[in-house]
């Protein structure tokens, strides 16, 4: 078994190849959550790749920032849910690997793509486990931008009301959304205080530090009787220097020269 750092490095190589080959967008979003996803799939989640949906007590994960699908698909392939070669079909005609997350892909629990849906569904799953006294946990990964959506905060209220301490939300707080910095669009700050005021227990971590991520993800529920949120401070486009913290790389797809530079950085060749 590889470690999560190597898992994340391989994910980034796949993400770059997939998005370049597909002439697709959202590379910055996929790279910002890569380390979170790597630690989850490599170290944390209780799932079985050979029978993803019949393992009744598997952890559920709703990847709500569906536009960063390349990240999830790369992780699922590396975790053995389907062959890595299939990643080359991303976005392609006749493929299962759609631009936004699809539950038709092995290992995907829930389809997303329209922001603000995922947390409610993860909340429902957590409530189901609670009601039945089952030990599995429900995870949701949200973007910061989708905290603009009112439905996210409806779900936040509900999770606290029903004391869903088996629910673990990770927010990829890269501070950039589609057209601008979140601060310039709808400022989320004081962000952590907002979650606390909704009754959630929170931890802020460096979303690229695997030790911190591992420790935070392993220490949930932070407090018995409360839902947990990990606010992962991340950098959009992390891992490819010229993409980091640039609004441009929400939508831009690398051209050939940029692709070659990015490959050099990720593979060190």
């Amino acid at each position: 078994m590889i470690n999560s750092t190597e898992f994340a490095r391989r994910m980034r190589v796949h993400i770059l190849d997939m998005i370049y080959s597909a002439k697709a967008s959202h590379i910055g979003s996929a790279l910002s959550c890569t380390d979170i996803v790597a630690v989850l799939y490599n170290n944390i989640l209780k799932i079985e790749s050979d029978d993803p949906h019949r393992f009744k007590n598997r952890d559920r994960i709703v990847f709500s920032k569906g536009h960063a699908s390349a990240s999830l698909y790369a992780a699922l392939a590396l975790a053995g849910f389907f062959p890595e070669e299939e990643l080359a079909t991303f976005y392609k005609n006749g493929s299962k690997l759609s631009g936004h997350v699809s539950h038709k892909v092995p290992g995907v629990e829930f389809s997303t793509g329209s922001l603000g849906h995922g947390l409610s569904v993860a909340v429902g799953m957590a409530l189901a486990a609670k009601k039945r006294g089952e030990a599995w946990r429900s995870f949701a990964i949200l973007s910061d931008g989708e905290c603009d959506e009112g439905s996210t905060w409806e779900a936040a209220l509900f999770a606290n009301q029903f004391k869903l301490d088996n629910l673990l939300l990770i927010i990829d707080y890269n501070k950039i959304q589609s057209l601008d910095y979140t601060k310039m669009v709808l400022d989320l700050e004081p962000f952590e205080a907002k979650w606390k005021s909704f009754g959630w227990e929170s931890i802020s971590v460096d979303g690229h530090n695997h030790k911190e991520l591992h420790r935070a993800l392993s220490s949930c529920p932070i407090n018995k009787g409360s839902p947990s949120v990990i606010i992962a401070h991340t950098v959009k486009g992390k891992g490819i220097s010229f993409m980091e913290d640039k609004v441009l790389w929400h939508y831009r797809c690398p051209d050939e020269e940029e692709y070659k530079r990015a490959v050099q950085e990720l593979k060190g060749v």
Binding site: V62, S120, V121, G124, M125, A126, A128, S138, S151, F158
Partner: peptide, 13 residues
């Protein structure tokens, strides 16, 4: 909106 999302999560479980 949350109601329907929660219902979905419950039903998928």
């Amino acid at each position: 909106q949350n109601l329907i999302g929660v219902a979905t999560g419950l039903s998928l479980s």
